[in-house]
């Protein structure tokens, strides 16, 4: 069949909301876009464990510690579901990880900010996981079957993450004056980076139109950002904290909150590697991978040996 006809069949399926599965014909660029997006999503889940792991041993109570451990374990699982989804597209997992380590693949810039106090763990769960959920829920309906199925699992697990974060914020915001100050300080530092998680404004978003047509993306960056803003401002007020945006105002006519301009210079600086923790995050990821190499090799050698022994005993 001619490429043109295959493309038409493909787009008709997408338009009819029929999922595309790995062995189905798909345009090269669709495959490339998915490999890039899903592997970067996977890297984000894995790198995202680092700023939180920073606080496991210093959690203020056993209850908070087991919750944080469970959350971080979930994130490892999310990374795994997503790496598996990229593998259905014929990509080796180690190759995508090498791309990350070589600086060729990105992960979400939000994880290049440091977690300075325990309140940051609250703010990360509430704001960062909150923004991630806002992005991920529409991805459950993504046209590519394995990605959409992975997202369904991820979204089921995420809601606990945001709630445990908000519960930390509540405790801090209703605590001592010092705890309140820490809660506000964490919001001041995480508010804007969380809003940046939705990506550039629609007018400057390079890949959006094509991704919408392919139904990888369902809503524009600004639409999702607006939804997040409307939900989160109310939650921030519930904490009795201030939103660090002097231009923030409620539009009575539209019923929506309106925010001041985002500092895109900061965003692009962090994307390009000049954030506070870019180098540390990559070094830690690469270190963990390299130091684990002998373990992976030993496990494989042991498995091979067991297999040989089994064969020998069957032959005897």
């Amino acid at each position: 069949m001619a490429e043109k006809d295959l493309e038409k069949i493909f787009q008709d399926k997408v338009d009819a909301e029929i999922k595309i599965e790995p062995k189905d014909w798909m345009p090269d660029d669709y495959r490339k876009t998915l490999v890039r997006q899903i592997s970067q999503h996977a890297h984000s889940e894995i790198v995202g464990m680092l700023p939180e792991a920073n606080w496991i041993t210093r959690a203020p109570s056993l209850k908070r510690k087991v919750a944080l451990l469970a959350k971080i374990q979930d994130e490892a699982g999310h990374g795994l579901y997503l790496y598996s989804a990229t593998e259905t597209l014929g990509v080796e997992r180690d190759d995508t990880i090498e791309d990350l380590h070589a600086g060729k693949a990105k992960y979400s810039s939000i994880f290049n900010y440091p977690t300075l106090t325990w309140a940051d763990i609250g703010a990360v769960g509430w704001l960062v996981d909150g923004a991630a959920i806002m992005n991920q829920v529409p991805l459950c309906r993504c046209s590519f079957g394995p990605y959409s199925r992975a997202m369904v699992r991820v979204c089921k697990e995420e809601s606990f993450h945001q709630r445990q974060g908000f519960s930390i914020m509540l405790a801090m915001a209703n605590g001592t004056a010092e705890q309140k100050r820490m809660a506000q300080d964490a919001i001041d530092r995480w508010w804007w980076p969380s809003l940046m998680m939705f990506g550039p404004n629609d007018a400057d978003s390079a890949h959006s139109a094509q991704s919408m047509k392919w139904k990888i993306k369902r809503f524009s960056n600004d639409e999702l950002r607006q939804r997040f803003l409307d939900m989160t401002v109310a939650q921030c007020h519930l904490l009795g904290c201030e939103v660090p945006d002097p231009d923030l105002k409620f539009n009575e006519e539209t019923g929506h909150w309106e925010m001041g301009p985002i500092d895109w210079d900061e965003f692009w600086n962090v994307v390009k590697g000049r954030g506070k923790c870019n180098r540390q995050r990559l070094r830690d990821r690469k270190g963990a991978y390299d130091e684990g190499e002998w373990v992976r090799e030993a496990a494989m050698a042991y498995a091979d040996k067991k297999q040989l022994r089994k064969k020998a005993s069957q032959a005897a």
């Binding site: 795994l80 579901y81 598996s84 593998e87 997992r93 199925r149 992975a150 699992r153 992976r296 496990a299 494989m300 042991y302 498995a303 067991k306 297999q307």
Partner: peptide
């Protein structure tokens, strides 16, 4: 349910 890598 999904897939994963393992030695055996």
């Amino acid at each position: 349910a999904g897939s994963l890598h393992a030695a055996d």
